[in-house]
Simulated scan of single mutants.
Amino acid sequence: MSPDLALGTYRCRNIPQATVHAIACGATWIDTAPNYHHGRAQPQLQSVLAGNLDLRVSTKAGFFTPDIATAARDAGVLTPAEAASGHCLTHRYVAWQSRRNATELGRTPDLVFVHNPERAARPHDAIAGAFTALEVEARAGRIGSYGVATWTGFEGAFSVADLLDIATRCGGPGHHLAAVQLPVSLVMLKPVAQALDGTGPLAEATAAGLNTFISAPLHGGELPAMVTDELAQLIDPGTTPADAALLVTVSTPGVNHVILGAGRAQHWQAAQRVLALPPLPAKTLHEVVDVLGA
């Protein structure tokens, strides 16, 4: 089964317009966060979500804007030092932010990611505090489930097995840990190499029944200019650099949802065409990994 597309709102300049294009091309998820688009991403999604009840939404807790920091300090859930840091995963803050997310979105989030816990001084302790808060929210029906969104966390700070262990300690065998989010691209190739060997976060998440959300498949839009014609032809003869780069990500074993921050209709249509292509064989993915030295 091929992955599906999700709209990522981190880099979107016109979120409502991007959402229209994403839905038209089959996107089933929107991924956002309270700090995205200078804190304006979630409120901009409210009318879109109200008019598309089948569209699922994931958001996050961890990073915050100065305005959110002020509100959280006034609510007594951030200390001055925590507010100055721009990132917090304490139990009290995560619970408060999760409820604020729902208010801004105008609906119950399907999924709340603990955002970049590798930034914490003690990542495992930070994850445990956040998971404890999110278990309460999930059992109360205020969120659907939770997960971890990371950039470098799976490179040594924690593993999928660690996350499952922490979730079980915080929520028992019926815990609500449901997903992980991580970057996979021609720039971030290590998860591809690991998945081909049946190891690493994608393989571990799949084995545990967790959903995988892939961020930055085109590395913030920079990859098409970085892919040479020779590399594109190695990946899929006759394809464009952008399509070749995306095809590697969507062909990687264990990928469920691919998050794109595209704002233009033609970019979504191109992504839709890539997803309709047969996945690359493992032999080709191995060749790409070998050529790029992942």
Rank of each mutant, 00 (worst) to 15 (best):
L163F: 04
T168G: 04
K190E: 14
P191S: 06
A161N: 11
A195F: 01
A161W: 06
C170Y: 01
A178F: 14
A195Q: 04
G171A: 10
A179L: 05
Q194I: 07
S185A: 10
G174F: 05
L163G: 04
A167T: 11
A179C: 06
G171C: 15
S159E: 05
L186W: 05
E155P: 05
L189C: 10
D162Q: 07
S159L: 09
V160D: 00
L189E: 07
F158M: 02
Q181P: 04
F158G: 00
D162I: 11
P173L: 03
V187K: 08
D165M: 12
P191C: 07
G174Q: 06
C170Q: 14
L163W: 00
M188C: 10
V184F: 08
V160K: 00
A157Q: 14
L163Y: 01
A161S: 15
Q181Y: 11
K190V: 07
D162S: 13
L164I: 08
G171P: 04
P183H: 06
A167R: 06
G174E: 15
C170E: 13
D162R: 12
V180H: 06
H175W: 03
S185K: 04
G171I: 09
Q181N: 14
K190F: 03
F158N: 02
H175D: 04
D165N: 09
K190R: 14
L163H: 12
E155G: 08
A178R: 15
V160I: 06
L186V: 14
A195C: 14
R169D: 09
G174W: 02
S185D: 05
Q181H: 05
L177K: 03
Q181C: 10
G174N: 09
A193M: 07
G174C: 04
G171Q: 11
K190C: 06
P183R: 04
V180L: 15
L182D: 07
T168S: 13
T168D: 08
L189P: 12
M188F: 11
A161C: 04
P191E: 11
A193K: 09
V160Y: 01
G156I: 13
V184P: 02
S185E: 10
V180C: 04
H176R: 15
G172H: 10
R169L: 12
L189I: 12
L164T: 03
G172P: 03
M188P: 02
T168L: 07
V160A: 02
H175P: 04
L182G: 05
L189T: 11
T168W: 03
S185N: 09
K190A: 14
S185G: 13
P173S: 08
L163S: 00
I166K: 02
V180N: 01
V192N: 01
A167G: 05
A193D: 13
H175V: 10
L182Y: 03
G174T: 05
V160F: 00
V184C: 10
P183D: 07
K190T: 15
H175S: 09
H175F: 11
V180T: 15
R169Q: 14
M188H: 13
Q194V: 10
